[in-house]
Write a protein that binds this DNA or RNA. Structure first.
Length: 918
RNA sequence: GCGAGGGUAGCCAAGCCGGGAAACGGCGGCGGACUCAAGAUCCGCUCCCGUAGGGGUCCAAGGGUUCAAAUCCCUUCCCUCGCACCA
């Protein structure tokens, strides 16, 4: 058949996914295609559920395209797959939206959910919607309250005063993310002025609350309120905490075994937990009892020239009570987040437990209340901050450590902070730092080994409406009392527009009676951090309708942990630490029997536009539907490795569109084919084997989440099948199998197209439930085989080009004589010391003669670099099957033959046949 | 400062874990087929030299290990991100 005519035929139809989406959505729905009923141990594939911000953005699409492709792949492999979706529906932005639009958070959130669910359906994501969960509904958040009770009972809940960011105008605490830099004029468009959640990536949101209070950066801000630009102050409030620090050691140690997690996340968590080994040293302060300090440099204790406590320290309060100037300083320092190297000397003195010296006691802002013990021994010679403070306050330096190698130590201008050898330390002189630390610990009654963590307890109180009410009643007599389990859930009252916390204004909510003594009492009006909601949602999916427990323990025992969890890396320390904490806490409560919630974690990269992350505030957002949902989905999967960032370009997107058209066109033209061929020829065999090779390669790519590589395989097979179709009337079974393979390989990436192609091919049932293709032949050598064919084609092209051949009648391919393969094999398997040439020439398969002698010597020369080869038969067979590619390309007859002695095949070698063009 | 991850042809980007092809694929560019033409589609080329498959140089820079390195090791430079008044 002439080449052109079929090619034009192939262009007949155009695949328009818009038109077919509704149909397949209907069918999937009708068949409950993605529901999981009962299963022994399904593969649990989870994407971080989205904050309900209103519409699906590109970050979501990338996130969920990855889980969907993988879930579909596993399902086709025969696994039971749990692939649920839900809504992280509580949070500050809904409240703000309610203010701005004169509505209420619930209506707003429900509208967002409806929109996003529709967006997801449109993208073809196959979720088990029967397991949908929504965190703002009482049937979900009641279990937050239940957990609060359980944790309380287990001693994991504390109620204590905490210092937080406070906006006096809005009358609420602010999340760190809600505190702006004071100077917006030079803003480089990093999202300032946006609701924090408005353009975040998929996943549990970082919106409401003082999240950063689990860490240290709350101390860093001297900013203004993001909403009203009022300078943010500090305020001390009674707050509820989960004592995640009880698990600091476990959470840290557990990281070592999380092999399925990216190193980066594990490292970030290690940093965040920040374990420090050191010593707790007691200094006696005359008239005030003892003051403990924590130090990692006990070896420098003799260099202490002062003692400093934080403005929040008990000693500071005691001293302030007697001393006006101390009181003034403490007040000023506590009101401001930035104290610099300010401080105030007090009239107290502390005794150095080693030297017995009396040290002046300071109150200093640089000493943080919640770090270590809130007090430090000041060693200006060997600590950066102490040095700065001493310079500022004109305190003396005393060097007690010297560099061992006698190099310059930088003192007194700079502190010497490295380890070294002790001097001016009495009995400890001459010891190395580490040895001195050990000795001091054993000698000193006042010093004990101690460990501190950077990790803080998890402050879960939020002075917001749109969250889970903390199930506590405050009674004047009984103090804070837990709401009894039988009275749960404590439901949110109807929303009212107000400044500050709406719950405080709703008397019917606040006024209640004490569960213990029955007297009038007030409800807690704080709600929980939304990260509480997302800390256990993966458990709720297991039994979303259960109303007697948060989740079915038996099911959890079988189905956990989550096999694959996909989401953005921005949650490395918050959500991903909390979810681990919860799991461990629940394990200790006997509710689950895994220690870690997630086996394998994938952090998807971001989608860039003009080199920066797509975000509303930068105005560089591409709507996922702008280019067609399925094209977008295929593009985000094929553009790059899932963990890497990539650039959105319209051109690259259009090549994803083209690929869909190509695939659809191939199937369509097959269905409309004029004739078929039954007898099988060598080139059919080539295609058949290439199909196998593609299956093997693409399957490996899917296993490793290399969807972009799988797409490359699909492209290549599609190109080959197109060439095959145009070369000659295709063999019915081979071609059909090729198209069926292509269909199934692409179906997880483009589910609508997959169904459409499958349907055209009259595949059985849905492609979503079809069996993943398997190779029919051994494909262990596929890389060697592909390389041989590729090299040959390149060589032939080279010859045409270099020899300037316009037209050829015949291309003759001659494979090397059998004995050469044998000789090659002998050479490859020979040991280093063997007499190679002799060994080859003695081999029965190698004929005597000059040729053999020459080849043996050649092998000897290259013996180290010999590569694995096909054997003679395999090579001949492969080339015979591949000959059509040359014939098609050069429009010449191609013969493949084996060398038979005196035939001009001198150049042929194993892996490199002789080529003659006539 | 500490820690993590990167730097691959005009551009994007794979390969690096398990060393062996001037290095997948896409975009752009060039040439060709099909066409009145354009678009779409298809084929080839796209580091340098070469009239029979050859040679040279190459994966940030430099050094090392190895028969063999983009891949392993060391040093340097650059970029991105995380942590940092943490005692």
């Amino acid at each position: 058949m002439a080449k052109g005519s079929q090619r034009t035929m192939a262009r007949r139809g155009t695949y328009a996914s818009q038109a077919v989406k509704e149909y397949w959505q209907y069918v999937w729905d009708r068949e409950d295609a993605y529901e999981l009923a009962d299963a022994e141990n399904p593969t649990y594939v989870l994407g971080m559920f989205p904050y309900t911000s209103g519409t699906l953005h590109m970050g979501h699409v990338r996130n969920y395209a990855i889980t969907d492709a993988y879930a579909r792949y596993r399902r086709m492999c025969g696994d039971d797959v749990l692939h649920p979706m839900g809504w992280d529906a509580f949070g500050l932005p809904a409240e703000n939206a309610a203010y701005e639009r004169y509505t209420d958070p619930e209506s707003w959130t429900e509208a967002c959910i409806a929109q996003m669910r529709e967006d997801m359906a449109d993208m073809g994501f196959g979720y088990d919607w029967s397991r949908e969960i929504t965190t703002c509904r009482p049937d979900y958040y009641r279990w937050n309250q239940w957990f609060f009770r359980e944790f309380h009972e287990a001693g994991l809940v504390e109620y204590k005063a905490a210092e937080v960011n406070w906006c006096p105008d809005c009358e609420t605490v602010l999340a760190d993310a809600q505190v702006q830099e004071p100077d917006p004029g030079t803003g480089d468009g990093d999202g300032i002025g946006e609701a924090p959640a408005a353009d975040t990536d998929a996943g549990p949101d970082t919106d409401a609350g003082v999240d950063a209070d689990v860490g240290p950066d709350a101390h860093d801000h001297a900013g203004v309120c993001w909403r009203c630009e009022t300078p943010v102050g500090r305020r001390e409030l009674d707050q509820w905490f989960f004592t995640i620090t009880d698990y600091a050691e476990e959470l840290l140690a557990g990281l070592d075994d999380l092999d399925g997690w990216p190193d980066s996340v594990r490292e970030i968590q290690r940093n965040w937990i920040g374990r420090r080994e050191g010593a707790r040293v007691t200094f006696e302060v005359e008239g005030h009892g003892d003051v403990d300090v924590f130090t990692t440099r006990l070896d420098t204790i003799c260099g202490a020239t002062y003692l400093a406590v934080s403005p929040g320290h008990d000693l500071a309060a005691a001293l302030a009570a007697k001393d006006e100037s101390v009181a003034r300083y403490v007040d000023a320092a506590r009101a401001s987040a930035h104290g610099g190297m300010s401080g105030v000397e007090t009239d107290a003195t502390a005794v150095n437990p080693v030297t017995g010296e009396e040290l002046p006691v300071y109150v200093a802002a640089y000493v943080l209340e919640d770090v270590g013990t809130g007090a430090v021994m000041g060693v200006p010679a060997h600590n950066e901050r102490d040095h700065s403070f001493a310079m500022e306050q004109d305190l003396p330096l005393r060097q007690v450590v010297e560099p061992v190698d006698g190099s310059a130590d930088g003192l007194p201008g700079e502190p010497y902070t490295d380890a070294g050898m002790l001097v001016d330390s009495g009995d400890y002189d001459g010891l190395a730092s580490s040895a001195a630390r050990e000795r001091l610990l054993s000698d000193l009654a006042a010093a004990e080994p101690d460990v501190t963590y950077r990790l803080r307890d998890w402050l879960i109180s939020r002075q917001r409406y749109w969250g889970t009410p903390i199930p506590v009643v405050h009674c004047e007599e009984c103090g804070p009392v837990l709401v009894p389990e039988a009275d749960l859930p404590v439901e949110l009252p109807e929303f009212v527009q107000t400044t500050g916390n709406p719950l405080e204004d709703i008397d019917s909510f606040v006024e209640t009676e004490c569960p213990e003594c029955g007297r009038p009492a007030e409800r807690e009006t704080d709600t929980m951090d939304t990260f509480v909601d997302s800390s256990w949602y993966f458990l709720r999916y297991l039994s979303p309708d259960l109303d007697t427990a948060p989740f079915d323990q038996e099911v959890a025992g079988e189905w956990l942990p989550v096999d694959v969890y996909v989401g953005g890396e921005e949650h490395a320390v918050l959500h991903l630490l909390y979810i681990r904490f919860f799991t461990r806490a629940l394990a200790d409560l006997g509710l689950v029997d895994v220690q870690e919630p997630v086996e394998r974690l994938v952090n998807q990269g971001t989608v860039l536009y003009d080199g920066t992350k797509m975000s509303k505030s930068k105005g560089n957002v591409v709507n996922p539907h702008e280019y067609g949902a399925e094209t977008t989905r295929l593009f985000v999967l094929s553009a790059a490795h899932p963990e890497r960032d990539f650039e959105w370009t319209a051109r690259a997107v259009s090549s994803s569109y083209d690929l869909q058209q190509t695939l659809h066109g191939l199937v369509e033209s097959f269905v409309e084919r004029a004739g078929v061929r039954e007898e099988r020829e060598p080139h059919d065999e080539y295609v058949a084997r290439e199909i196998d090779r593609t299956i093997a390669a693409a399957t490996a790519d899917y296993e490793r989440f290399r969807f972009h590589q799988a797409v490359t395989e699909i492209r290549q097979l599609a190109a080959l099948l197109g060439q095959y179709r145009d070369y000659d009337t295709p063999h019915e079974a081979v071609y059909r199998r090729g198209l069926g393979t292509l269909t199934r390989l692409v179906a997880p990436l483009t589910p609508y197209l997959g169904e459409e192609m499958w349907n055209l091919l009259r595949g059985e049932g849905l492609v979503a439930h079809a069996d993943w293709p398997t190779p029919e032949r051994d494909v262990a050598d596929y890389d060697v085989e592909r390389r041989l064919v590729r090299t040959l084609r390149e060589d032939v092209r080279d010859i045409f080009d270099v020899a300037n051949i316009e037209n050829a009648d015949e291309i003759e391919i001659t494979v090397a004589p059998d004995w050469m393969y044998r000789a090659h094999e002998v050479a490859r398997s020979a040991d280093e010391g063997d007499a190679l040439v002799g060994q080859i020439l003695e081999d029965d398969a190698v004929p005597a003669g000059e040729d053999a002698q020459a080849y043996a010597e050649e092998l000897l020369e290259r013996r180290q670099e010999l590569e694995r080869m096909l054997d003679a038969d395999a090579e001949y067979g492969l080339l015979d099957r591949a000959a059509w590619l040359l014939s098609d390309e050069f429009d010449a007859a191609v013969t493949v033959r084996r060398a038979d002695g005196d035939d001009g095949a001198e150049k042929a070698r194993p892996g490199k046949p002789a080529v003659h063009i006539r």
